[in-house]
Structures are given as structure tokens and as C-alpha cells.
């Protein structure tokens, strides 16, 4: 009957979502899925930071190297990290690693480009002063390059973490058995839209908290000179 079609809700009401959320909290599965997702994001994000930022600084400072490597970067960059999923599973098997790899890819290129840009745009006068004072390589890095790029890199970190959080859910929808993305797919398959909505709610809340944390990091001591200017 046509009436029954109308009974299919376009969106579950808030009370049902909260009830689903409550049950997910009670049986411990929500915590488990959150931890799984956060773990993947953290590892992928950190791997991207420790590789993309040093490489970006190197490319930003040595233009010849940049000219050689840049076409490769620009070729790989537009390929959606999710397109790598089949290969990720093939290479790394089932488990956390494929998702971590996809998050790593999603974070790597934006961070790399931010680091290249930040270090290529350091005012050349600062390097002349450094050369004039005969600063050692290490001292020039610690006193000129690092503090000069930190503000831009911090901004990129904040934006990239948000992106990593978007990607982890998508990655977990492809062949994962845990995580908030899996929770959504699982809810969909069981036709439990209240659980899907509950997972979305949690994803949004965690995203908000992550952004707040990154914002706090922006007020670190090493950025005081920049903040004081505002």
C-alpha cells in the first residue's frame, strides 16, 4: 500500500537517535569504534607530519629538487586517497593498516604543499643575516627556518586533521570491521537509520573537539610573536 511507503522516515526523530546512541554507549561498542577510528587517524596523521614536513622544507629550500619532484607530486595529488583502497587492502591486508595508509595519503599532500610554500617564502633577508652571522646549519634551521614556517604549518595541520577525520569514515566504509565508518555501513545494512544518525552525531562531535585541540596548539609559545600582532 502507498500508506506504508509514507511510514519510511526521511530522518529518524531525535529521541530515537539518542536512544540508539545510549544503547551504543551501554554495550561499549561506541567506545570501541571511536577508539579504532581515532587510532587510525592519529597514526596516519603523525606519519604524514614526520614525512611531509621535512620533505616539504627540503623542496621549499632547494628549487632545483622541487622542479624535478613537483610534477610527480602534482600527478599523485588529485588522485583521491580512497581510490587507493583496493591496493591498500591488497598490500596491507585486512586490519588497521589500509585505513592508516589512506589517511596518510590524505594528509601527506596538503601538508607537503603547505611546508613547501612556507619554506620557499621565507624572506631571503633572514638567510642573508644568518649567513652574515655565520650561523651553523643547525642554528639556521632552529632559529630561522623552523620558526618561520611554524605558523603556516600549524594552520595546515589544523585543516588537514579535519580532512583526515572525513577520510577515516570513508575508508572504514570500505572493507573495515570496526570504526565509526563501519558503524554507519552496519546501520545502513540493518536498516537502522537511527544508528547511522547516532554515528554521524558522534563523528561531528569528535571533529569539533579535534579542531578545538588544534586551535589550542595555535596558541603555543612558539607562535606568541605572531599572535601578539593581531
Amino acid at each position: 500500500m502507498s500508506v506504508s511507503a509514507c511510514n519510511v522516515e526521511m530522518f529518524p526523530d531525535i529521541a530515537r537517535i539518542l536512544r540508539a546512541l545510549y544503547r551504543l554507549i551501554l554495550d561499549g561498542s561506541l567506545l570501541k569504534h571511536c577508539v579504532a577510528s581515532l587510532f587510525r587517524v592519529t597514526v596516519g596523521f603523525y606519519l604524514a607530519i614526520v614525512t611531509a614536513v621535512p620533505l616539504g622544507v627540503l623542496l621549499g629550500l632547494y628549487r632545483t629538487l622541487y622542479r624535478i619532484v613537483n610534477p610527480v607530486i602534482q600527478f599523485l595529488r588529485p588522485i583521491s586517497p580512497l581510490a587507493w583502497a583496493p591496493f591498500a587492502i591488497l598490500w596491507f591486508g585486512i586490519g588497521d593498516l589500509p585505513a592508516i595508509f589512506i589517511i596518510f595519503l590524505a594528509c601527506f599532500f596538503p601538508l607537503l604543499i603547505a611546508a613547501v610554500d612556507a619554506s620557499a617564502n621565507i624572506n631571503p633577508i633572514y638567510f642573508q643575516v644568518g649567513a652574515n652571522l655565520q650561523l651553523s646549519r643547525w642554528s639556521a634551521f632552529a632559529n630561522i627556518i623552523l620558526p618561520a614556517i611554524i605558523p603556516n604549518v600549524m594552520l595546515a595541520l589544523r585543516m588537514t586533521l579535519g580532512m583526515a577525520w572525513v577520510v577515516v569514515v570513508a575508508a572504514e566504509m570500505i572493507g573495515m570491521k570496526s570504526g565509526l565508518g563501519f558503524l554507519i555501513v552496519d546501520g545502513r545494512d540493518a536498516l537502522r537509520l537511527d544508528r547511522v544518525a547516532a554515528a554521524m552525531l558522534v563523528i561531528g562531535l569528535i571533529g569539533l573537539v579535534l579542531d578545538r585541540i588544534m586551535q589550542q596548539l595555535g596558541e603555543l609559545e612558539s607562535l606568541r610573536w605572531k599572535n601578539a600582532r593581531k
Binding site: I125, Q128, V129, N132, Q134, S222, W225
Partner: peptide
């Protein structure tokens, strides 16, 4: 460049950080 021949720059060359 050498530290015993110091250049004093036209524009602000102090490290802002």
C-alpha cells in the same frame, strides 16, 4: 659573508619570532 664584516640592512631584518 663573514661575521667580522657585518651588513646592517635597509629593511627590518630582525627575526620577528
Amino acid at each position: 659573508p663573514r661575521a667580522d664584516h657585518m651588513f646592517v640592512f635597509q629593511e627590518g631584518a630582525l627575526f620577528p619570532w
